[in-house]
Design a protein around this nucleic acid. Structure first.
Lengths: 351, 351
DNA sequence: GTGACAATCTGTAACGTTTCAGTATATAGC
DNA sequence: GCTATATACTGAAACGTTACAGATTGTCAC
């Protein structure tokens, strides 16, 4: 051992976290060789590779994220961009878990980047891109002409959207088929003899507002039912507002006998409004609602529900982003979740 | 301009993100000077400092996180560690927003580190500490003797717990006063003439199980009411199980005439169970429940609620961790949230 | 034995930052 | 005029990683 190697040994044997230098010392190789051996580079001998990998595993070597990031620009970070005012509660929780599930055995970390009402939704995206803080981004509340998607496409940063855009541009997305949801809901209500239907839709600016309306309208004419306009509120409005508007609507002459609601929390408000007007669910009016946790049937057993699985969405979105980062074609990373049937309440087996 | 400076110029004027080198070139100073000027070091002339900071602001300089992290070990990351099975849904969403709110104008990022049923809760903590992935950690589901808190105290990494420990060790926490909640709930039920009370408590292993039980027991003897044991389930159990057990309990001879529930979702199950048994809320039995969003009154107007604000908890926890990182005494970073009064439903102003 | 070539390994530099150990200049003391 | 000291600045080194451009072998053809 020459003086040079001796110095290395002194440094590398320190009790801190093992680095490539530590491994290099332990194996008697150079750091370059170790680095390449760990990533299965072709010019490393088979035995050396195995030896290095064994030692690395033994001492629990983990590459230093800052080192990698500084050298390569790779952050190993996926950012989930969320609106702190309008996201559905269970959406946040479930989508995070879905994403987590997928990135669990990758080196990726999940960072949550929030933005609030007062901010341009583009702000957090700009920040992420300009500072190179993430390798991939997931956004929700997607719009038909979405500046965020456009911006990220221009900058070439991989992303996936929850919901589709409509700009003639190709990018990964995961979406729930809200057209099918609304259409199925209409058909189901028609099957129950309901003829005058009201829709509590998503806010107009979001893409799935359009999808939902289209499904609603198409099925209405298909079954020959009519629409009772209810577009002074959306699922983004407060519980109190929806409740009030619903009660107003239900007190009118030509009130609806069926409701379709795009979100569970809003459905609670609709039901409250219906009851405020002195009417009874299941008798005077039926309500079909989307929900993401199985809670609405506990609320009122007369409710009719369609489930949307946000955890699945999170997983799917994460897979898409990782796929794009990994070089897959963005067009091949799009998925649509087909709604199940409208479900009525089934009393559980009693004890 | 000598040859050396010329080279710098060539490199620094590149259109990439500005670095210290860019600033050094633009101001004609050395990188060291620029670095110090930006952090208000004392040995920099006042005018130089202002000049550097002005230029930095003008060109939108932002320190490279990887560079800082590699050199100093500072990650500028707070990690929120979550159980993917048992966290309350709104907890995840609200606490994230609370934390976000506080770290919004700091350089900190929030990463979410999940762990699942199958894992030792210590695993994610070990990972964070061993890889130096965060400057501070927030954990929930705190236990009286919490190995995670003990571990982080040993390793000297700043953290805050949602809920207290009981190990004689001092660390930042934020907690809701569940003793007061349970006691107030008992008193309120007693005031309604309820005498035989059942408690749906948090899981035994968590610290606030003890707090809740103590408040319950103390107030029971204070008002002279009695307990109907209901400890075969906790709020961690499934909706179905709670519902079934509640129904069983309510069909017994000596059934409770009052319930106290530590979580909103569980309350839905309790009410369902009560109604399964053919009994009526408000007539046969009253239920006081904690909730974190204002939804229970929509569910059944007879429900009595106490609000727990998770967003506030998130903000408080973030402040605590940042405070500890900033050098404050951990003992000074503890807070307890006092529950408001038990609230009955107030019909909203009609239109 | 020589040259060519493949196989395998290595040192150096660079990513952007901060720290250490200076250097240069001005001011003051005497 | 000299040293001492404070002020304001600077270059080099280091954090851990990867890419580039070699360096050292051994093998084979002829």
């Amino acid at each position: 051992m020459n003086r040079h190697q001796k110095e290395k040994a002194d440094e590398a044997s320190g009790q801190g976290r093992p680095t490539l230098k530590t491994l290099a010392f332990m194996t008697g190789l150079g750091v370059t060789t170790v680095s390449r051996a760990l990533k299965d580079a072709p010019e490393i001998g088979a035995e050396t590779r195995r030896r290095v990998q064994l030692v690395a595993k033994q001492i629990g070597y983990r590459p230093n994220r800052a080192g990698v990031r500084l050298r390569t620009g790779k952050t190993n970070v996926i950012s989930l961009v969320l609106n702190t005012e309008h996201e559905i509660m269970s959406f946040v929780s479930d989508i995070i878990y879905g994403v987590s599930e997928v990135i669990a055995d990758t080196p990726y970390h999940l960072i949550v980047t929030p933005y609030s009402r007062s901010q341009d939704p583009l702000d957090p995206i700009r920040y992420l891109v300009e500072t190179g803080s993430a390798d991939g981004v997931i956004i929700s509340r997607t719009q038909p002409n979405d500046p965020r998607a456009r911006y990220m496409l221009e900058r070439g940063i991989p992303f996936a959207t929850h919901g589709r855009t409509d700009m003639g541009l190709i990018h990964p997305y995961h979406d729930f088929d809200n057209y099918a949801f609304a259409a199925e809901a209409v058909r189901h209500l028609a099957g129950l003899g309901r003829r005058r239907l009201a829709l509590l839709a998503p806010p107009v600016e979001l893409t799935y507002h359009g999808h939902t309306l289209a499904g609603f309208a198409d099925a209405l004419s298909e079954v020959g039912a009519s629409e009772i306009p209810f577009n002074t509120v959306s699922i983004d409005h407060s519980i109190e507002q929806i409740r009030m508007r619903t009660a107003q609507l239900m007190r009118r002459e030509n009130r609806p006998d069926g409701f379709i609601s795009s979100a569970a929390a809003a459905t609670l408000a609709i039901v409250a409004g219906i009851e405020d007007a002195g009417l009874k669910l299941g008798r005077d009016v039926d309500v079909v609602s989307k929900q993401s946790s199985e809670l609405l049937h506990l609320f009122r057993s007369e409710l009719l529900v369609v489930n949307e699985n946000f955890r699945l969405a999170g997983a799917e979105l994460a897979r898409s982003v990782l796929g794009w980062i990994g070089g897959a074609a963005p067009g091949s990373l799009q998925s649509l979740s087909v709604p199940g049937e409208v479900q009525a309440y089934r009393r559980p087996a009693s004890t």
